[in-house]
Write a protein that binds this DNA or RNA. Sequence first.
DNA 1: GATGAATGAGTTTTCATTCAT
DNA 2: TATGAATGAAAACTCATTCAT
Lengths: 203, 203, 203, 203
Amino acid sequence: MTKREAILAAATMLFARQGYKGAAVSEIAEQANVAQGTIFHHFKSKENLLISICDDLVQSYIAGIREAASGPGSGWEALERVLKFNEKFSSDHHDSITVVFRETRDLSRSPGQINEHFCGLVNQIIDVKTQCIEKGIKDGSIRPVPAQLTALLVHFLLIGKFHVETEGLLEVPEMNAEFLEFCRRSLAAQAPSAVLDEDKCGG
Amino acid sequence: MTKREAILAAATMLFARQGYKGAAVSEIAEQANVAQGTIFHHFKSKENLLISICDDLVQSYIAGIREAASGPGSGWEALERVLKFNEKFSSDHHDSITVVFRETRDLSRSPGQINEHFCGLVNQIIDVKTQCIEKGIKDGSIRPVPAQLTALLVHFLLIGKFHVETEGLLEVPEMNAEFLEFCRRSLAAQAPSAVLDEDKCGG
Amino acid sequence: MTKREAILAAATMLFARQGYKGAAVSEIAEQANVAQGTIFHHFKSKENLLISICDDLVQSYIAGIREAASGPGSGWEALERVLKFNEKFSSDHHDSITVVFRETRDLSRSPGQINEHFCGLVNQIIDVKTQCIEKGIKDGSIRPVPAQLTALLVHFLLIGKFHVETEGLLEVPEMNAEFLEFCRRSLAAQAPSAVLDEDKCGG
Amino acid sequence: MTKREAILAAATMLFARQGYKGAAVSEIAEQANVAQGTIFHHFKSKENLLISICDDLVQSYIAGIREAASGPGSGWEALERVLKFNEKFSSDHHDSITVVFRETRDLSRSPGQINEHFCGLVNQIIDVKTQCIEKGIKDGSIRPVPAQLTALLVHFLLIGKFHVETEGLLEVPEMNAEFLEFCRRSLAAQAPSAVLDEDKCGG
DNA sequence: GATGAATGAGTTTTCATTCAT
DNA sequence: TATGAATGAAAACTCATTCAT
């Protein structure tokens, strides 16, 4: 592990636990086993360090859901893969994601490009989900819902879940199956229960 | 407006915009048109000021959803009222809610009682929703789903929506109708969506 | 002596001896017997402290030469009073003047108003001298020289003397009489020696 | 241009603009297109770099006025050549001279030899001027003035002019002729000014 | 000779809090 | 109740210098 990587790791952990403002650069340096100056040698400022962490994570998330969305099968199946990828990604990058969620608000206030940069990335995330839903509507695997609004709603679910989980006020049990089922009932055209419904009105 | 109220209002606004750590007591004093010392007269410390804001808000939220949940009609109707109350509450207390969401994480780390206090409050919120769903399952207005997990999922949706809206990275359009519909399709038994389904197959 | 005055005195002494950059705020605080924070309570920044010192001094210098220039008698006598005032002022405010001369260059680079502010003050100083010379030319006490350029030359002499004296590389003996004589020979129309000259060509 | 020269050039420019303390070694390195380490290879320390600049300049100045002073003609003519050389030297070495003037004060405080070294150099400068004046008094081209004090006064004029010009607070017009004339009126015996006087009275 | 990563002491500045009035 | 001057610990950041390559 290079010093640069050690710094990123230490900062990620401390930002996640104590927040950006709550984690002193001196703490990060100590945790990473480097001198304070070394941090400013690699990242010109504390804020830059935060941006690096956020940027790295968002980029890799986007790459991941792109790949998940682009696989074979129906639109609903693509969306399911995206949701499952999301779950795995969450547990693999727990700290970095916490950082991004905690500090996005301050990042979005900072001047100029950074704000726009992150806006662009988040919009890409919504776009991928929207495309899955549109595809699903076309191929009949998803009900005829407003695609973009629905993508937003799914996004809310994911964001909300993560916030609640990392907040630490509520004990959140394992619930992936139920999570998927909740979405499926609302979105999928031919869910098991829908089959029963159709049976009932018997075409 | 008393000085105490002016301080609370100023602090709420500044904590929402700049975060708890990012808002200096001197700024709050200036914004509230009082001397710094006055703040420490009314609230013993800066943290106390934050706790006041959070506590006031959470208490009034709980009272609100309790009332919404306790009205007449089916469980689904009660849940619908809770969701609508939530929407109105969100727009009425935008800044205070932002504060609570931004700072919950740090409150939950602070020692002893505060943590437990807020845990208790949040659990009450989940409980109200769970009870609506249980009631709905009994009276047939809601599908037979695991009540508590489903209450959590609805909670995720609400939390996620608020986070995304206040983050400022994504333009969130008005979508209350779609929000309700999304939940209804997933939760409500037969009736509304079934009607549509019946229309389709019964043409 | 108020704390504010103690800070100004300590800063003046240290800026004079070690330069603006060379004098740490912590040193100033120690010397003034106040806490570091107190300095930032009274002057918002270190630079502000410097500006206060410079401004106070330049203002009082301008008031002084204005008074000296406005007395009775010929233009040359007014100029002589200005030069004598200058001498006294130099020894009375040795440290502050050193600060102004050492740091003017950086002040003149700082943005916006400060630069223009000090430009205005220095121009006023030149103006007073120019007016003395113009008056002297009119009343016949000073030779017909270009008034403004000559004011500048006298200014150079004063500035140069002060720089050399405070630099500490050269031992500068008491030389006020010679200083005045040097100017008088160059400027005064009816200097003793000029009288002799005129006698010589005896109309 | 060797790397050593590039470093000297960059340092001279930056020291002149920002002062010795205000110019970081990293800035100099960047400006000179070398690595930071290279600077410490050629000059053992930052202070050494400053001393190099100052020393080079002062040496070449002394050589220049020595040559100017040693030419043929009267003492006044020698002094005139010295003043003219000074003028040309000022415009040729604007930045280095600014550095010397800005930082002399700190050099003169630094311990031991450096102080004495520069004292010696400056005294040599005064000596050359004194010798011109002494020679002029002997050969009748300069009035019978106290030679050393007068040399100092001429020195003040030169130093003052350069400080005011480089300070940037005052617009200094071209004024070489007037500068010489100012000195001539004060110092030169009879001749030129006497001619004018004679013209006037002898009309 | 040349490099640039690494250092840690030192700098200015911020800020919650106290307390005499 | 209200004030605001005073504090000092802690923060982010700078920078001359060293040294392994």
